[in-house]
Amino acid sequence: MSGIARAKWLLAAPVGAMVFGFFMVPYLNIVVMSLRQPSTTQAYGPGFTTDNFVKAATDPLYVVTLLDTLRLAAMITLITLALAYPVAFHLARTESRWRGVLYGLVLSPLLVGVVIRTFGWIILLANNGLINQAMRQLDLPRLQLMYNEFGVVLALVHIFLPFMVLPLMGAIQGIDPRLEEAARSLGADKRRVFLRVLLPLSMPGIQSGCILVFVLACGAYVTPLLLGAGRVHTTTTVVVHQLELFLWPFGAALALVLSLVGLMVVWLYARLSGRVLRGQS
C-alpha cells in the first residue's frame, strides 16, 4: 500500500469509527431487539420470535397508522414543494441587495430548536391561543387549529421549507435564464415556459428536496406529539408509546417497518422521477 493510500485510510478512520460505533451498532441492536420477546425488567427478554413483525404488519391499528403517516408525509412534501418553488425561484434569480437577508429568512426556521418552535405554534394555534383570542374579540367562532392534522401539517411544512428551498434554489440557479427567453421569443407564454422549460430542468432539485422532506416528515416526532396532543397518531408517536408500555421489541419492529416502507417509497419515487430526468445530462 502506498503512503497516499494509507493516509487516505487513516483520514477516513475517525469517520468510519463514528459511523460504526454510533450508527451501525445501535441500528443492529434495534434489529436484534425487534426479534426478541418483551421484558419488564430489561430492554428485551431471551429467545427469538417474529411475532413483533407479524403484529406490526397485520394489526389494522398499526397498518392504518403507518398509512396515515405516509399520507401525511406525502401531503407535507407536496405543500412544501408548492410553497418553496416560488421562493426558491425568486432567491435564485434576484439581484436585490437584500438577497442575503432573504436567504437568512428562509433558513430562519432552523435557528430555533424543534421543541421551542413547536411551543411557538401552540401559543398561536391553541384553543385559547393568539389567533382564537383575536377571533373572540371579533365575535367570530373559535377555530380548531391544533389537536388535529391541520396543526401538525402546518408546523411541519414550516420547519421543512428550508430543506425544499435550498435544493430547488441550487437547481434553478443552474438554469440559464436565456433558456426561458428563447422559449418566450418563440411564442411560449409564462405558463408554458414554466411547464416545458423550468419544471423539467428543476427536476434534480425537486427530486432531492422531496426525498429530504418526505423522509424528515416520516420521522417527525416532537411536532405530531405536541400539536397532535394524542389526537394525531403517527408511527413515530406509536413507537415511543410502546417504549412506555415496556414493549421495546415491538417498538423496534414498528420503527424498522416504518424505515423500510419509507425507503421503498423513496426508491419508487427516485425511479419514477429518474425516468423523467433521463436524457438531461
Binding site: D176, R178, E181, A182, A183, L201, Q280
Partner: peptide
C-alpha cells in the same frame, strides 16, 4: 443567443 440556449432536456 451567444450561449445558444438550446433546451438541454
Amino acid at each position: 443567443f451567444q450561449s445558444y440556449a438550446l433546451w438541454p432536456h
